[in-house]
Design a protein around this nucleic acid. Structure first.
Lengths: 112, 112
DNA sequence: AAATAATGATCTATATATAACTCATAAAGC
DNA sequence: GCTTTATGAGTTATATATAGATCATTATTT
């Protein structure tokens, strides 16, 4: 059938996904875990794990992070123990920031 | 209707998703971009952006990374310019690692 | 305080990711 | 080299995420 919607991705996010996939695959092999094994533990199919390791965009974020955690890939290069602290930090920051962003109405007399 | 499948997530991945969502939201607000605006530029709906910022697991990895890139959240704390290098590194590593993991057959006489 | 714009929340139809299979190939270990 | 197991790739049915809408609420700016 005809393809209905095509989504595009920036180079940066494509590369980030590729990198994440590679990191996961390398970590899995280093830990001597089969794809089957990891998939089972993560509660996903082997096919999905394959796609995650390939860095394909159309995977569930949750499944991807779960797998990463499982094989020991650190997201954000942050230690598990400090994750909470970082969350707290962002919450504090968000508390200070405005709750909603108001677009400036275009100013007519701008440069004089 | 009855819920059909429930997926569970480890604490680490849940926290990682929450953190990512928070980082994205903070970055978006700091850059004074409305949710609408970011969603449009990323080619996704505002509803999906909301869920991404909430750190919900069932979002597309690609969409999430795309949004992160858009508002300037660095994945892996890695500069855009060096991403390629990191990919290369993992590829080199993968080239050295075994292509498939062979499970050791259970050793009967293990502890003597 | 009033006006207005942004966000939060919820709903439905539809596109699509996923699980579960199969088969072919490759590679590890003996 | 041989055997066996892991992986790669493809297919299909089904569960489900997403877009797109609406409405209520909140927050910003004047």
């Amino acid at each position: 059938m005809a393809k209905v919607s095509v989504r595009t991705y920036s180079r940066y996010s494509r590369e980030a996904m590729t990198l994440l996939g590679n990191l996961i695959r390398a970590a899995r092999i280093e830990r001597e875990m089969t794809a089957q094994e990891v998939a089972e533990r993560a509660g996903i199919s082997r096919g999905l794990l394959q796609r995650i390791e390939k860095g394909e965009p159309k995977c569930e974020l949750g499944a991807t992070f779960e797998v990463a955690a499982l094989v020991g890939v650190k997201l954000f290069d942050i230690e598990a123990t400090t994750l909470n602290g970082h969350i707290r930090q962002t919450e504090d920051k968000l508390a200070l920031l405005p709750k909603s962003v108001r677009k400036k109405v275009k100013v007519a007399d701008d440069d004089f």
